[in-house]
């Protein structure tokens, strides 16, 4: 492999900094934190969210709407199913793809959508489904439905993490994305999210997972004359359904 060997590269950086050797790094409080300290902070954070849940859910709905999500609040799983049924019917699509996350056990959608005459593909790999065939199914779908690992009140974002049954393309390839958010997915701030992920990273022995993706509103561009166009590479229409 071409390139400069690490030792040589770092040596040139060190020289530029005017040093001979790697000095002991100056105290950087963040990197010195122990997992038990992080745990304490997470517990406090969780408590704060629990104590302020209704207000934070309202904030999530507000910020998500500002971010371009079409927000729907639902109090029961049936409401969620009914809302998705309407969206699916109005979209005129024949194919829907959904992830295989826990949330769909709580909110069983498939029967309703199938009754509408739609083909529902679930991301479920087995002997017959390859990554390639799955990708084609996603591409043919008019709607992609996912859960959320977290939803951030500060920014109105949905956060998705890698897991079996969730392809990252579901939320970006179909022209419509529906994200299901439950009250327990709620975090308040970016700090909450990164604190939590850092703790999990350490708890899992230094495994981050291959991605951590934010989605906030539709895909958009303003590259031609500053005119905002939605749906340039990703979905044009994004729905956040908040249950709780």
């Amino acid at each position: 492999m071409p390139g400069t060997p690490k030792a040589e590269f770092l040596q040139s950086v060190r020289e530029a900094l005017g040093r001979e050797n790697v000095p002991p790094i100056e105290a950087y409080p963040r990197l010195a934190e122990t997992p038990s300290e992080l745990e304490q902070q997470v517990a406090q954070m969780r408590q704060h969210i629990e104590d302020n849940l209704p207000a934070l859910l309202d904030k999530l709905a507000k910020m998500a709407a500002l971010g371009g999500w079409r927000v729907h609040r639902a109090s029961r799983p049936e409401d969620v199913i009914e809302y998705i049924e309407t969206l699916a019917r109005d979209s005129g699509t024949a194919n829907v793809v959904r992830s295989n996350q826990d949330v769909f056990n709580q909110i069983p959608l498939d029967a309703t959508l199938t009754n509408l005459g739609l083909t529902v593909t679930t991301v479920l790999r087995d002997e017959t489904t390859t990554r390639e065939s799955l990708r084609e199914e996603i591409r043919q779908s008019g709607i992609g439905i996912t859960g959320a690992d977290y939803a951030l009140a500060e920014t109105g974002s949905v956060i998705v993490l890698p897991r079996k049954g969730l392809a990252r393309l579901i939320s970006v390839v179909p022209p419509v994305h529906i994200a299901l958010v439950r009250a327990e997915d709620l975090l308040e701030t970016l700090d909450d999210l990164f604190l939590l992920r850092r703790l999990e990273y350490h708890q899992q022995g230094g495994e981050m997972g291959s991605y951590l993706n934010f989605i906030t509103g539709p895909s958009r561009t303003a590259d031609i004359e500053m005119t905002i166009v939605e749906g340039v590479h990703g979905p044009k229409e994004v729905h956040m359904i908040i249950l709780g």
């Binding site: 920014t155 970006v172 981050m208 997972g209 291959s210 991605y211 951590l212 895909s219």
Partner: peptide, 15 residues
Amino acid sequence: QRITSYVSMTTGPRR
């Protein structure tokens, strides 16, 4: 913008 539509954080290849 308050935040962009996408923030993609990638750590290594797919698992």
